[in-house]
Design a protein around this nucleic acid. Sequence first.
RNA 1: GGGGAAGUGGCGGAAUGGCAGACGCAGCCGCCUCAAAAGCGGCCGAGGCAACUCAUGUGGGUUCGACUCCCACCUUCCCCACCA
Length: 827
Amino acid sequence: MLFMAGSYDFASIEHKWQSRWERESLYRAPNESERRKYYALVMLPYPSGDLHVGHAKNYTIGDAMARMRRMLGYNVLNPMGWDAFGLPAENAAISHDADPAVWTTENILNMRRQLRLLGTSYDWSREIATCEPEFYRWNQWLFLRLYEAGLAYKREAPVNWCPQDQTVLANEQVVDGRCWRCEHLVERRNLSQWFLRITDYADRLLDDLATLTGWPERTRVMQRNWIGRSEGATFAFGIEGLDAGVDVFTTRLDTLFGVTFLAIAAEHPVVNSLQRIVSPEHAAQIDEFAASLQSKSELERTSLMEKRGSFTGAYAIHPLSRERIPIWVTSYVLAEYGTGAVMGVPAHDERDFEFARKYALPVVTVVVPPNALPDEMPHEPYVEDGRLIASEEFSEMSSERAREAIAARLEALGRGKTSVNYKLRDWLISRQRYWGTPIPIVYCSGCGEVPVPDGELPVLLPLGVLLRGEGSPLAGVPEFVETACPKCGGPARRESDTMDTFFESSWYYLRYLDPHNDRLPWSAERAAQWMNVDQYIGGAEHTVLHLLYSRFFYKFFHDRGWVRGANEPFKNLFHQGLVLHDGEKMSKSRGNVVGIDETAEKTGVDAMRLFLLYVTPPEETSDWTNEGISGRVRLLNRIWRACEPFFEAERDGGARELPPAENAADRALLRAVHVAAKSAIDETLSHRFHYNTTIAKLDELVNLITVSSGAGADSPVVAYAVRSLPILVAPFAPHIAEELWERFGHTTSVHLEPYLQPDARALAVDEVTLVVQVNGKVRARLVVAPDVGEEQAFAFALAEANVRGHLDGKEVRKRIYVPGKLLNIVV
RNA sequence: GGGGAAGUGGCGGAAUGGCAGACGCAGCCGCCUCAAAAGCGGCCGAGGCAACUCAUGUGGGUUCGACUCCCACCUUCCCCACCA
C-alpha cells in the first residue's frame, strides 16, 4: 500500500476498527432501553454476488442517518438481511451448473464481508436470510393465515409463457413482449394459479396514502394511479334470444344514449352462450377471431396491434331506449378489467371512435360543449363533459347531473347501480420455479385442497434438484410431490408451485424484531416495542409493488392484532438516486463497474462514504469520478494533519466546554464548529439527509482550522475545534473519527458519544452585512450590529454616497426593513 | 395519450421570498523544491478602463424585492399506458 507524506494510513485504520466494532458488538440494539427507539431500515439486498459503489450509496445514506440518530440519543435498530430466494440463483444453476443454495450462500458470505467493509453499523445478531427454513417456514405460516381468512385462493388465470424455454415468466422478465433470455415472443396461457386478495384492501390502501406524509409525493401518486380507483356505474344489457345479460362498467353514464355497439373481450364467458344462438357462420367467425388472439400477450393485444373485432351476429337491448345494439368481440377490451365488456360510444370515446370508423359503425353525438350547437359529422370524439342532447328526458342536463339521474333511473328499473372499479388486480403469487418458498397446500383425491397443518411446517424445499430451465422443477421430484393427505392419510400430491419472492419481502422487517422466535414469526410485544419503521430507505424501482404489498400485509397483520398502532409499516420513506460512472450506467459489459474492494484499497471507504454523500443531494443521480473522490481524500488528510499536533497532548477533560473567544478569528472558528453540527442535526431531523451541505460546512471548518493553525496547540479555541472533529465526522467517516478519538486519549468509542449540540452563543454573530437597496437594486453593503434598528440603519444608508446618488433628492415613498438583513428604499 | 420530477458558471452543486454561484472538481498564477509530487496561498459567470450593466431554460404575471410563488411554452429524465 503506498501512501504519500502528509496522508494517513486509511487501510490499516479501517481494518482495525471494523474488526474491533465486530468483536465488541458495538451496534447491537437492545430490546429494552431507557432511550427512545428508532427503527432505521434499508431495503434488504438480493445476494447477487458483488457490491459496487452504486450499492454503497444506499447503505451509506442509511448508515450515516442511523449513526446520527444513535449519537442523538436514540436506541437505534439498524438491521440487515438477505432477500435470498429468486431467479438469478436458479439461472446460475441452469447456465453454470451451480447449486442455487451454494451459489446463494457464497454470495451472502461475500456481500456480508463487503457490507462490513463499508463501515456500516448493522446489528448482525438479527441477520436473516429468506431462503433458510427458519425464515420461510413463517412465509408458509402467514400464507396459511391468509388462506384461512379467505385472502389466498386458487383460480385459472392467463400468464406469460415462453414457448421456446417452455416455462412461465414473471412480468418483469417480459421485455417489450419478449422473453428476456431467448427473445422469443411471449404467449398467454391459462394456468391454475394462487392469488392473494389484495383488492379487498384497495380502498384502505388508497385512503391511507393520505396519512403517509413522510413519503415522497410522487410515490404516493404512483400508488394512487396503480390502485386506479374510478367511480361510475355497472349496468346490464339484455341479449336478444337469451335469458342472460352482459354487465358493463362505465364512468360516462351520461353518454348512454350514444351507444352504437357493445364491445366484449374474446374470453368473456357470455361468448359461449352467444355462439349457441347465432348462425353457424357467425359462430365460426367468433372462433377464428378468438383463436387469432389466444396466444397473444397483453402487450401485443394492446400497444402493438390495431384494434380488431368481429361481429357476433347477436344483439343486445339498450337498457333505457330498448334499441337493438350489435355485439362485437374485440381485441381492445380487457377481460381482466371491469366486467370485460364495454358500451361502445364512438362519439365520446377515442378508442370506440377508432373502432367504429374501422368497421363503419354509426357515431351518435349525445353530449355537446355547453354553449355549442351539435356538429352534424364529428371528425373526432368529444370526450369532455358538456350538455346532453338526443337523450330522451335527460336532454339539456349537464353531464354531471345526467350521470346521477341516469344511474337513479337504472337503479329504479333494477338494471344497474353506481359502482367503483380498480385497476389493481389480485396479486398472483404462484411461480413455477424452484428457488422459492413451497406453497403449503396438498391435493387429495378425496378431501380436495388441504392446507398443511402448522405442526408440519416447514414444508422443506428439497435440495439438489436437477434444473433444466423447463417446466415446473418441483413437479418433477416424486419424493417432494408424493405425500399423505393431512386429513385422511390417503395418498396426495403437494402443490409444486413456489411463492413470489415479494411475499417474504412484504413482512421481513418484522422478523428482525424477533429473529430467533420459533413459535411465531414475531411476537406482538416486540412489534409494539419497535414498529413502525421510522425511516425506510431504498430504490425508487420498488415504489409500487414492494411498498404496496407491504402495506397490504401490514394492514392484514393489524386486523389480526399482531401489530398495533398505526396500520402503515413505514412512517418515512426515502428513495436514493443512482450512481453513474463518468456519465454512464455501471455495467459489466461496459467494464466501468467501480467495486467496493478496489475502492477500499485505493482511497479507503471513509473517502468513498464522504464522496457519495457529498457529490449530490442523496435523492439525485450522482456521477462517480476519480477526480471527485480525490477531493474527499484531501479533506480526510487535512483533518488528519490538523489533529496530529494534538495526539501527544494529555487528555483534556474540558475540551468540550465552549472556550471564550479572544477575537474575530476565534469567533468565526467556534461558529464554524457549531454551524457544521447544526447542519448535521437539521438534515437528520428533517429527514432530508442533504449531508452534502453538512460536509461542505466541514470543509469550511477545516479551511478555518488550517488558516488558524499558526495559532498553534496553545490556542484553546483551535484545540476545541480540532477536538470536535472526530465527533462531527463520526457519522460520515466513522473509521478516521474513531482513530482520532483514540489518539486524543479516549478509551471508549466515539460512536457511543452524544453528538455536538449547537450552542446559541457560538452560533451568534456580532455583526452582519446589511444590504441596502434602492428600488430593489443593491446599492450598498453595511457592516452593522445584528440588532440595529430601522431608523439607525436608514441613517447609515444615507451616509453612503452611492445610496445618496441613487436617491438624488427624490421623494422616499416606502421603506422595507428586514432586521439584520436588508433595507430597501423605494423612491 | 396520462401522470410525476427537474432545468443555476467548464462540471457536481449552494441559496425555498431578501447579497445568486457556498463547498468541491477541473483550470490558471504564485510560494515551497535541484526538480516533481504532496502541501500552502491567490484567481476563477459574461461585458466594461470604470462607476456600473447583464445573468438561474423561454415568455408573461404577483411583489418594494423572484432561482424561489402563479400562468403558458420549450427541453430532459422517470413511471404508467386501449383501465372503459
